[in-house]
Write a protein that binds this DNA or RNA. Structure first.
Lengths: 184, 184
DNA sequence: AATAGAGTAGACAAATCGGTATACTTTTGT
DNA sequence: ACAAAAGTATACCGATTTGTCTACTCTATT
């Protein structure tokens, strides 16, 4: 609807993802976006509401990105390769839509919001379920053990790439491991 | 040395781990520990120094806990079982030394401190390397692919248990997957 | 041309942040 | 026993936090 609202949201998401939510104040978002404080509080009743909207925005972007990466996969092996190649590309900052890699926004956010019953923490959980579903939809065979393995290794790869910075080796190892599982 | 210093550190670690570092103020730590502000700043020059000391404390506790859990393992298979049984026990709050489970303190902390070159972020990286080394020391065979798989799945399991709350199924799946890898 | 809605700039409020200073008391080592 | 070190309580500092308020401007539609 409003282009100001959208610019606010884009700026907030970028800053939140890059620096962590608690480290980014409302005033910084206003300064970077060049929008007045009053305008922000017309569109979002509170910072938490802005955070929640940013999470939704990131969720939509990530799911769309993932679906596109998994499109046209015609076998389990192709899903494995497409998924972890995409992750590797993300880790090495070659996915413009996702911004400079700094781990998973939802893992990071759930680390800052400790209340397990809050809307924000709940949405992080919901996001992970949705991602799992997208992967599941692309697996022809109903191999739930392989699906589980892919999801666990995906989280492990994201965390490892973020903390240890070795993106390429990690994803290559994941592919190798999952291929062994697939054919066993 | 000083018992006050230790109490400060224990309180800080508990609160930081449970609520996130940026969500816990100096004053809260003082109120809970019942120690004067002046005393804190005698022992720690800044909040960041306290955070760093808390990370070191957690590191020592975690490494000791892990070594104990992996002690007396006599085969690769036993390492797999000991490691992921221990994790499952942690996830379901049965490991008093580690406190109520709220993910990995180092993953959580690195989510809050975005500067990759800071001492704090660096220590989180260092911790993960040390954990990997402890696991490696218990593997008789020099199977680096299995080691890598165990580390990736360990991170994946921690994140998944925290965000999705399904501790038991996750670790059971990890064990199943790793056993397949081991014997292939 | 008039009016309503969206936006701006910035002062302001109340709370909280990390950190310092002061004046005093307790503990500890020799 | 005495002196140094450690600890307490509390006031205070400047900066920063989210959020409110006022007064003004721009723009679009009827």
């Amino acid at each position: 609807m409003s282009q100001k609202r959208q610019r606010l949201l884009d700026t907030a998401l970028t800053l939140f993802y890059q620096n962590g939510i608690n480290s980014v104040g409302i005033n910084e978002i206003l300064a970077v976006s060049g929008i007045a404080k009053r305008t922000l509080y017309i569109h979002f009743p509170s910072k938490d509401a802005l955070v929640f909207a940013a999470l939704q925005q990131r969720h939509d972007i990530f799911i769309a990105w993932l679906k596109q990466k998994l499109a046209n996969t015609k076998s389990t092996n192709e899903v494995i390769h497409s998924l972890f190649s995409a992750l590797e590309s993300w880790f090495s900052n070659q996915e413009a839509e996702l911004g400079p890699f700094r781990g998973c926004f939802f893992i990071n956010t759930s680390a800052e919001f400790s209340d397990i019953n809050s809307d924000i923490f709940n949405f992080c959980h919901h996001h992970k379920q949705q991602v799992r579903q997208v992967i599941a939809d692309h697996l022809i065979s109903n191999n739930s053990e392989l699906l589980e393995a892919m999801c666990i290794m995906k989280e492990g790869a994201i965390v490892t790439a973020h903390l240890c910075g070795s993106g390429k080796e990690v994803t290559a190892n994941c592919i190798k491991i999952l291929e062994k599982l697939e054919t066993s």
